[in-house]
Design a protein around this nucleic acid. Structure first.
Lengths: 328, 328
DNA sequence: TTGTATGCGTTATCAG
DNA sequence: CTGATAACGCATACAA
């Protein structure tokens, strides 16, 4: 329609500077009236690059699917990439098969969440030399392990409680299986270290180790209350647990933040919406998505501006209603 | 390596029944030791089908991104499809450009959320004859409009309040722009109709029309309380508003569910985790994702089992702590 | 600056 | 049942 060869059209679209203004206009004209959209499969085949990043998010408890994916996606879109998502809880979708499917789709790089790092996985990943990153894992393991300084997170919680005057505290901790265990463990170690440093006592009788969940939090706080300890504050591993604990307190006519302080890490966003406000340590999940995208695109030789995404956690005291108690 | 032609390999992989057992084994053997994964781009090019569904979720207020996408994704994965996601809030990502990008990627079908249905959009959609579905829109508009019976939802709220004996109620309603406005409007009409039918009075002085959000809910309830009306219950359009309203009650030392009943629609999941439990009308968002996937795959000629996904809403009374008041 | 020709890795058609 | 061969629609090296 523009009276030019296919090659010229191709160049007009992907490298306009190589084409004279006149022909380019003619081509664009035709493109518009025809509503022409280049065939991505053919382009991928020819260029051996799909401009697509795969993300496979294996099901696990409190995975921050939504925030993480949002962060990753917006980063990629800005650079002209798209996100191929595999987050299925369907039966038989294993680590390996999900990965295989991604590779078959021809993704340029892969973001992983909740992977066991099995031999098979490692094998297929290395065989295809696809850039990949493990999200929410231990950043000390290397460049493609994107994650938080969990020990620091734990420390922040204790420091905050210490400043408020708490001396005897309890812990409701959530069990997480698999490779993500580390983040739970690290955070707890940070907790313990800081408690030692600051002269805070973690009463074993006020510590519960349980599954994650609202119900579990409620049960846990009940048990702790039954044990009649002297704790003035409880650290919860996740906001699910914390909200359950709050509810448990209410049910026994105690007021969170007054009779017993609760501080928690918020993996999710909803802990912002409870009353009385929970003291939460905000984890930068969305930013983790940014950082993952940033890393992968850099691996692909994309020009990336300086890494401005800090993964520092941020303490957000949401105690606008009642202050945490001062035990003195 | 298996001493066969490429054609045979292709068949061994995608149509095993056409191949003798012996050669098939030989091929599989080679596939395994080689770690061979077929090139999806080439396959797509040859078959003119990508086995990929695009979802473009335009940013808007309380979109249930996460649940909706999860539902859609699990449906697709079960049928061997994958999800190409575009949910960016990046600048300049318009309805049209997002759609274009999807088409360029060669998706077989498209799921839309939050679309204005502009002329351009319609044009490109019809030009490419790609099966598509509008999620969370008015199901009365046709087969590819997947959504809820919002009028019924409104009615359910009123019926429930009526059964509990409420006679004078208020409403905190959330404004949503764009084409999704309908769901808000429909729901409200259902509310009004049912109120008329059941002899319930919606006091204008206890009605607030506002943006969605936690803060907005808090302000709204404050205003309503200031107006000193006789309402015994408030219907909130979304759980964001409801949680804000709850908080507002607490701040004025009133107890939700005792001094004033609150009922809300829960678009999100977190309203399950508050105290005292909110009476909520659970909206089947995830199921909407299922249904969308079901519809699109059927358009693509996929064998689908009978449609078992009901989009009926479900009233979930979470009043395990304190009952709604009986105003008699 | 533009046209031509070849290759990208499959699937599908058609013989054998 | 299997092998050759021609699309599939684009990018690119090379020629003009």
């Amino acid at each position: 329609m523009a009276q030019v060869s296919t090659g010229t059209v191709s160049r007009a679209l992907s490298r306009p500077e190589m084409i004279s203004e006149e022909t380019r206009n003619r081509v664009m004209q035709a493109v518009n009236t025809l509503g022409y959209v280049a065939n991505g499969a053919a382009r991928t085949l020819a260029m051996r690059r799909s401009k697509t990043i795969g993300a496979v998010v294996l099901k696990f408890g409190s995975s921050n699917f939504s925030q993480l994916v949002e962060g990753l996606e917006s980063m990629l879109t800005n650079k002209g990439y798209t996100l191929l998502l595999s987050a299925s809880e369907a039966d038989g979708i294993t680590e390996f098969s999900a990965l295989r499917a991604m590779l078959a789709r021809g993704v340029d790089a892969i973001a992983l969440l909740g992977f066991e790092d099995s031999p098979e996985t490692k094998d297929i990943l290395s065989r295809y030399r696809v850039p990949h990153a493990h999200m929410w894992s231990d950043p000390r393991h290397g460049g493609n392990f994107i994650g938080l300084d969990e020990a620091k997170n734990g420390r922040i919680a204790i420091e905050h409680l210490s400043e408020l005057g708490h001396r005897k505290i309890g812990v409701i901790w959530g069990y997480i299986g698999g490779p993500t265990r580390f983040r739970s463990r690290m955070r707890f170690e940070g907790l313990e270290d800081a408690a030692n440093d600051l002269g805070i006592e973690i009463l074993p009788k006020a510590c519960i180790y349980t599954e994650h969940g609202f119900e579990q939090g409620r049960k846990a706080i009940n048990e702790i209350l039954d044990r009649q300890t002297e704790v003035t504050a409880i650290v919860c591993a996740s906001d699910y647990l914390a909200l359950g604990a709050m509810n448990g307190l209410h049910l026994r006519n105690k007021c969170p933040g007054k009779d017993l302080s609760i501080i928690s890490f918020n993996d999710n966003d909803f802990s912002a919406y409870v009353h009385p406000p929970l003291t939460t340590i905000h984890l930068p999940i969305r930013e983790m998505g940014f950082k993952t995208g940033h890393y992968l695109l850099k691996c692909l030789g994309e020009e990336m501006t300086a890494d401005t995404y800090s993964l520092d956690v941020e303490l957000r005291v949401r105690a606008t209603c009642r202050p945490l108690i001062d035990p003195e």
